[in-house]
Design a binder for these strands. Structure first.
Length: 425
RNA sequence: GCGUAGGUGGCAGAGCGGUCAAUUGCUCGUGACUGUAAAUCACGCGCCCUAUGGGCUACGCAGGUUCGAAUCCUGCCCUACGCA
């Protein structure tokens, strides 16, 4: 069986960090840059694995926290591992659960996403942002009983104590536990357990969090080695699992570079670049990090995937992406087109009998119209989510594949400029 | 024809003298969504304006009582159910 590896096929050049390559995994190769489809709970929502494969996806990323809570990592292990359990024979990733420390912790109930929009002075949204910021900071700093009651996650040096969002029961996740669970789940590529900070956190707070994430990275790596060499249950679970370390540091250059040096200096098989970003600094933050990370190992940009971000990521040295946007947007009626995203539920599509995109080769566009999709969404039919997810994933997966091809064909810049000009008008 | 219960904004359905341009749900309109607490959430939904305010028209129709009526009274029209 093929072991994990990475080879660079062609560099983008021109002073950039971009490259096209191939990640080798026990379950097949991933031609990079690539968009990894998100299947949090061992399913890409609304799609069968055949549909996922047919739309061109190369790999699926599932989530440690979610599978641990439901149905339980041991059950997945006993089912033969993630791939067999969900009937996906291609490469698989598992995120460590670190993101849930953020989304169920500091960000809980705050409406803070991992990508913050830069506040514009003198607007109402800025006022709201400031309120949000002070609220968030005070919640994080005081740890009073009220906020404790509101938040289902609490971080300490050793790990995180969670309250399950499903039934309220208490659970504990540490770097060791995360790796144990990930080994049970049995994906090809695992991630070290990290803490994703809020984009609104100040430098000092992010620094403290980052230092802890670095200590967690070391512990994740140690546990991974231990589990990989133990040999138990090798009959059930594939053992050539790769572990990616996760870089944090928010929007601060010194922290990002410190993180890249620290994590990059450890013996990981590859790297994940974690949030938080503002919309404006995704490209720069990624460039700071990738300028330092060892070139010969793959880099995954965690949770990022709007079209412009994909171009920025690639030219700054990212090999793989994952993002819930295509599937979540799709389920909510947002469809990608070369002319920008459209809301298919808008009144103007009710009687529009053209496909979502007339030249799109996806299953949805080949067989259905905007009017039909608008109807399915308005009628609350399940097929709406399926057809929209197929189109959006096809669009994004193909976009990244086209970016890859443009690197190889040496026309990346033209492709990028042409695409972005049309997409963002 | 008699009896009973009703007629409220696109629909259903609250309100039963002032705090009602009218609770709520749905529909409808728009927006948000970036390692999925998400098939979720937010906002809007009579008309007009020199809009964190003001004006106009509104609760079947027409009158009336009252400082004030969707809310009370009278007549008319209509609906549902029961009895003829």
């Amino acid at each position: 069986m093929q072991k994990f590896g990475f080879s660079i096929e062609k560099k983008l050049g021109g002073g950039t960090l971009g490259r096209a390559g191939v990640i080798h995994t026990p379950h097949g190769d991933i031609a990079t840059p690539a968009f990894i489809v998100v299947g949090t709970k061992a399913t890409v929502k609304a799609l069968t694995p055949e549909q996922v494969k047919d739309l061109g996806a190369q790999a699926v990323l599932a989530n440690t926290y979610h599978l641990y809570l439901q149905p339980g990592d041991e059950l997945v292990r006993d089912a033969g591992g993630l791939g067999k359990f969900m009937h996906w024979d291609g490469p698989t990733f598992t995120d460590s659960g670190g993101f849930q420390v953020f989304s169920l912790g500091a960000a809980f109930g705050k409406g803070v996403s991992k990508v913050a929009t830069m506040a514009t002075p003198d607007t109402r949204s800025d006022l709201e942002n400031k309120d949000l910021r002070s609220d968030l900071v005070s919640t994080l700093d005081t740890d009073d009983a009220r906020s404790e009651h509101a938040r289902p996650a609490k971080v300490d040096e050793d790990g995180v104590t969670f309250k399950s969002h499903i039934d309220g029961s208490s659970h504990r996740l540490t770097p060791e536990r995360s790796l144990q669970i990930q080994h049970s789940i049995g994906a090809d590529i695992l991630f070290a357990f990290d803490e994703c900070t809020s984009p609104l956190d100040p430098h000092a707070k992010q620094k403290a969090s980052l230092d802890r994430t670095h200590r967690w990275a070391k512990r994740s790596l140690d546990e991974h080695r231990k589990l990989s060499s133990s040999g138990t249950r090798s009959d059930l679970v594939q053992r050539e699992q790769a572990l990616f370390g996760v870089i944090q540091g928010g929007k601060f250059r010194d922290l990002r570079e410190d993180s890249a040096r620290t994590i990059g200096g450890m013996d990981f098989d590859g790297f994940g670049i974690g949030g938080s970003f503002t919309k404006e600094d995704i490209g720069t933050a990624v460039a700071w990090v990738n300028a330092i990370l060892p070139e010969e190992k793959p880099r995954h940009l965690l949770g990022i995937g709007e079209p412009v971000d994909l171009f920025l990521g690639v030219e700054n040295g990212v090999d793989t992406f994952d993002c819930v946007a295509p599937t979540r947007m799709g389920r909510n009626g947002g469809l990608y087109t070369k002319d920008g995203r459209v809301a298919i539920t808008n009144a103007k599509f009710v009687n529009d009998h053209a496909p979502v995109e007339k030249d799109c080769r996806c299953y949805t566009c080949k067989n259905f119209t905007r009017a039909y999709l608008a109807h399915l969404f308005r009628a609350d039919e399940m097929l709406a989510a399926t057809l929209a997810s197929i189109h959006n994933l096809y669009f994004i997966v193909r976009l990244v594949r086209c970016i890859r091809e443009s690197i190889i064909a040496e026309n990346f810049s033209q492709f990028k400029d042409g695409f972005l000009k049309r997409y963002y008008g």
